[in-house]
Nucleic acid binder design. Sequence first.
DNA 1: TAAAAAAGTTTGAGTACTCAAAGTATTAAA
DNA 2: TTTAATACTTTGAGTACTCAAACTTTTTTA
Lengths: 231, 231
Amino acid sequence: MASRTIENYLKQLWLQQQESRGKYVPMGKLAALVGVTAGTATTMVKAIADSGLAKYAPRAGVRLTRAGEQLALHVLRRHRLLELFLVEILGIDWSEAHGEAEELEHVISETVLARIDLLLGHPSVDPHGDPIPSSAGKVEAPELCSLAELQTGSRTVIVRIMDQSSEFLRFAQTSGLVPKAAVVIEHNNPQAGAISARPDGKPPVILSMTAAAKFLVRPCATAGQRRRKSS
Amino acid sequence: MASRTIENYLKQLWLQQQESRGKYVPMGKLAALVGVTAGTATTMVKAIADSGLAKYAPRAGVRLTRAGEQLALHVLRRHRLLELFLVEILGIDWSEAHGEAEELEHVISETVLARIDLLLGHPSVDPHGDPIPSSAGKVEAPELCSLAELQTGSRTVIVRIMDQSSEFLRFAQTSGLVPKAAVVIEHNNPQAGAISARPDGKPPVILSMTAAAKFLVRPCATAGQRRRKSS
DNA sequence: TAAAAAAGTTTGAGTACTCAAAGTATTAAA
DNA sequence: TTTAATACTTTGAGTACTCAAACTTTTTTA
Ligand SMILES: [Mn+2]
Ligand SMILES: [Mn+2]
Ligand SMILES: [Mn+2]
Ligand SMILES: [Mn+2]
């Protein structure tokens, strides 16, 4: 069994590989994500590579092997099921669930995980809209566009939030920008570099393009155009 | 914050001190409970004593200080609330709950613990009938007698089981000897060294005195005599 | 009471991390 | 194209455990 330290490295690696479409993750990036110095990351990555969970290319970066990916997805499944469980069953605040799950993900047994999964009705997404990998280690993340890409007058529904920090999540919650919330884009002038989005039954919220890009939505169709089919 | 290693030492120390009425716990005993060699226990105990959580008397043993006791009770509270939670909410088997809780007790936050406590309705005993320490660090364990002490013909109710091993718990469960079960003592001849107890609606179970002593009951009044008042 | 057994302690070494600081390779700037 | 900045790696050392084996003290047995 992988130690909790290694589980954290693998999970961050998987998450980062999603961002940078399969490219080698640079050491500095990984070190920052895990919260250690670059030297520590280098040492650990070499050990991880030796156990066959990743491929290490000196001075280029690291990439998970198939085995490493599977293990990472197992950890991610535990993390996301736990987040949902904490929010739905225990009533823990949305913004705190991530931090709690970060610890619990390493000590929950398969038995307990299976009961949680059952109790939640085999859910497919966590409280932030992130997909929950199956127990067989599969995830399907549909292509989504963000609030930043929608034109003035569009109506859409938020499905996923791409930031786990409790400050951002608290802001999102008080603004009403939560998964399943219907939203109208009141203004999106590319020149302004900011948009105004109004969640159903709430006052409009002003967002920078950076902030708006963190809210993934569906459907993507904008006011003037119909969107082409996507997988 | 105490590491999970130290939390385990403290908890075992507290549990053992209950058995041996406050006497110093010998190193060998502690080592066996924690599952390390005597040398390791000696080293760790010296460190624990240095941080003020225990008093170490070389070649005599260890004893918790007030601070150590409080910390131990906090761990025990987490352990027992978790056991009940695992059984009641997640439907984990009675015999497995202890092992699961052994890991979880070190990573649950105060926030999550408070929610579990609330969800369970501030319970006072765990699934084995062990009392749950209050958040202020108080436990009251009423004086109880065991099945072994009852005379032939006595009727009583099981309230607590003094063995956490999953084999013993499975045996207890299939026999019907669980907390809250009503039991009649069919035979208890001191010369035989074994008793026969019949749980309500179940066939009688033969128990050695050692096994019978693990089932704590109330009331203690036997067939022929009335029991004197106890605190 | 001396020898043997048991219980406890110390020492030396190993694992699994971690960091700071020094050294090396790669990339960007001048 | 030399120089400087950046990224990465290596080295040496520290923490928090752990064990095996040697040693010491206490208790038992003869
Ligand atoms: Mn984690
Ligand atoms: Mn999440
Ligand atoms: Mn434990
Ligand atoms: Mn218990």
